[in-house]
């Protein structure tokens, strides 16, 4: 949450330190941001699952999940798809440029409930960012012992669209999490090939194969609507209850602090009451996403 002594609409000034083009089609870039003021950095404490409003003077703000982990100190990472006015402009910015970050905003994955449990992480496409944050956080030496077995399934349409390839190498090489990467298809024209085994298939079918027991487990899941639609029945068949499954939602936002009104789903505001909801909570909300 934003420090209570602050005006919640006033962004922290940050500098773009590095821009990583994540995908072959250049549609997704990760922005590494560093705080201009040390004291702002100290005030900014977050939990994986939260998001920020990236604030570009003259263009506006966009709500983007924090892709870095609190265990990665000194910077914040945001992976942004080139889509609208603000994200389009952000993609044209360069290292050294000054912009703003407002946050951290929203709630987070249910870390208190996840402690001592098996963790299943399911992500698809560009929605993998806060799950990247979560995996890095879980794998940190001070945290890994808090969780039992960790299984992650991450899918993209093709190899060129896989995010965080340096991290995928690391996670696949390690034995502390059971990491499964999948793409819908491997195209001949794609020149890059990973050094590890990459599944071919949609996320729901890989989940069906790799996630076989709901016992003592929590699922955190974030992805495009089609992936969610077809993964939910798989999880249900395995035996997961709606209370064990947590999703991260998105909606158009402006204020990010529950005041401007537009991001509601029923009586809940995605920006403030969410973005993370259990499937059980969502079942009580109107179907208007």
């Amino acid at each position: 949450m934003i420090d209570k002594s602050m005006n919640p609409f006033l962004p922290y000034p940050v500098k773009i330190d590095e821009i990583i083009t994540e995908t072959g089609d250049h549609s997704l870039k990760t922005f590494k941001l560093v705080f201009l003021n040390k004291e702002d950095e100290e005030k900014f404490t977050f939990i994986p699952g939260q998001f920020c409003e990236l604030s570009i003077p003259g263009k506006g703000e966009i709500p983007i999940g924090i892709a870095s982990s609190p265990t990665e100190k000194g910077y914040l990472l945001f992976t942004v798809q080139k889509m609208g006015v603000v994200s389009g402009y952000l993609h044209s910015m360069k290292p050294g440029d000054i912009m703003g970050v407002r946050g951290p905003l929203g709630n987070w994955y249910p870390w208190d409930k996840m402690e001592g449990k098996n963790i299943v992480i399911i992500g698809g496409g560009c929605a993998f960012s806060t799950l990247r944050s979560s995996i890095v956080y879980i794998r940190a030496p001070e945290n890994r012992k808090k969780f039992k077995q960790v299984t992650a399934v991450y899918g993209a349409r093709c190899l060129d669209l896989l995010l965080y390839c340096d991290k995928l190498d690391e996670w696949k090489a390690g034995d502390d999490i059971d990491m499964h990467v999948t793409v819908d298809a491997i195209k001949d024209e794609e020149t890059w090939r990973p050094e590890w085994h990459c599944n071919v298939g949609f996320v729901p079918s890989i989940v069906k194969e790799k996630v076989t027991s709901p016992a003592d487990s929590i699922v955190i899941i974030c992805g495009p609507p089609a992936m969610l639609k077809f993964t939910m029945p798989v999880l249900k068949d395995v035996g997961f209850t709606p209370e064990q499954i947590y999703l991260s939602l998105e909606n158009r936002m402006k204020c990010g602090i529950g005041m401007c009104g537009r991001c509601n789903v029923g009586g809940k505001l995605v920006c403030k009451d969410g973005p993370v909801f259990s499937l059980a909570e969502l079942g009580e909300l109107p179907n208007e996403t």
């Binding site: 609409f9 570009i56 003077p57 003259g58 263009k59 402006k254 005041m259 401007c260 009104g261």
Partner: peptide
């Protein structure tokens, strides 16, 4: 009614 928009102008 309290809903509002936020816009930048240069």
């Amino acid at each position: 009614c309290w809903c509002f928009d936020i816009q930048d102008e240069i």
